[in-house]
Amino acid sequence: MWQRLREDEWPPLRELLGGRIRGCAWSLLLIPCTWAVFLPVVLGYPLARSARRSARRIFPSRGHRRIEDPEVMRVQKTRAWLATLMSVVILVAYGKPEDMAQAEEQFMFRLIVTPWLLLLSTPVVVAMLFRWASPAAKDSMRVRLRAAGRSAVRYIGAFTAVPLLSLGAYGVQQVAGPDAAGWTAIALMVPMLWAALFVVFATGPAVRSAFNTAAVHAALPALLTGVLVWEFAVIGLVMGGPPPGPPLVQACSLLGGPASVTAVVWWEVQRLRTRYGVALRG
């Protein structure tokens, strides 16, 4: 059952409660002190399932690349682990307590900023690919780009709906009477929670697929990765300053990550051209 919860389609609540925990569920219902824990699960699970199903329908979990190359994936994972290891070694060797806290802040900052930085960077990279593409390829790319645009609009709409509905519920509580405010606030909180869950479930696949623009061109994910890594390097330098350590270590830490990612991106693009016939021009 827990393996199914990792899939795109969650099982219905009846199926979830109809297995091993059916007797446990009924016993919990008969004990009032457990209702505060059990009822939110019973009421919240269908809402979360609906939000996840919609998120996965718009942003499939495995739709981030048109061409899956196991060799490329292995090299990317190896580079990522080595970069993480080097960052930890530098922090342990030269870092101060404030550097540790700053590293955590930058990690959280990247999680929050990445979707919006993608929304700004993707049109630039797509415009470059359009300029290089042949007229026949442009027609095919336009069709896929329109679908990707609709996906991005839905994500932005759900993200925007969360604070708007929250402000609406707060405003109703301030203006309407206690009885009307309570029911109206609940009516607004339900779609707000659904939108928040949709954003949570959609963000990972949306970022990996660059809001489904990966379908526009097979090389687009690699090119976007190369652009984003340099953007984050500049943002990290401006916001947090250089990494700890002597000047040579600072330079290697600051430029080594983006440079290694760029090298992997170049190799991936060349591999797409030679092995799969994917060309940036023509």
Rank of each mutant, 00 (worst) to 15 (best):
Y155K: 06
F159S: 14
A147R: 14
A83Y: 06
V92K: 02
P70D: 07
L145W: 10
T122K: 04
I58P: 00
Y155R: 07
A136W: 11
P40R: 01
W132H: 10
K96C: 00
L43N: 05
R110P: 00
W132Y: 06
T78D: 09
I156D: 03
S61W: 07
V153A: 15
I112V: 14
S151A: 15
F109V: 03
A101C: 00
M128T: 11
A101W: 09
P60V: 05
P40K: 02
D99I: 01
R49S: 01
M141G: 03
L145C: 05
A127G: 05
Q102F: 07
G63V: 04
A137C: 03
A93E: 11
R79W: 09
V41S: 01
A152G: 08
I67M: 04
P115D: 04
A127N: 06
L43A: 14
K138I: 06
I58A: 14
M128L: 15
L82Q: 05
A127P: 01
A48S: 02
P115H: 03
R66K: 12
A137L: 07
L145P: 01
P123S: 05
R150I: 14
A127C: 09
R62T: 14
L111E: 08
A147Q: 13
M73P: 00
Y94L: 02
A83N: 11
I58N: 04
Y155L: 11
A137S: 10
V124A: 10
A148L: 07
V124I: 14
P70G: 09
R53L: 10
A80D: 12
T122G: 03
R52E: 00
M141S: 01
A147E: 13
Y94R: 03
Y45M: 03
P40F: 02
D69T: 00
P46N: 01
H64T: 04
P135T: 01
R131D: 08
A158K: 05
V41N: 02
R110T: 10
D69Y: 08
I90W: 12
P115Y: 03
V113Q: 11
W116V: 01
Q106G: 08
V113W: 14
M108S: 08
Q76V: 10
S50M: 13
R154C: 13
R74I: 10
D139L: 12
L47S: 02
A83L: 15
L47W: 00
I58K: 05
E104S: 12
H64P: 02
Q106M: 14
G44W: 02
S61M: 10
F130D: 10
Y45W: 00
P123V: 03
A158S: 14
A103M: 08
R56W: 01
P70S: 09
D69A: 08
F59C: 08
S50Q: 10
M141Q: 05
M141R: 06
P97N: 02
S54F: 07
G63A: 02
R49K: 02
R57M: 12
I58V: 13
V126M: 08
A93R: 15
R56C: 09
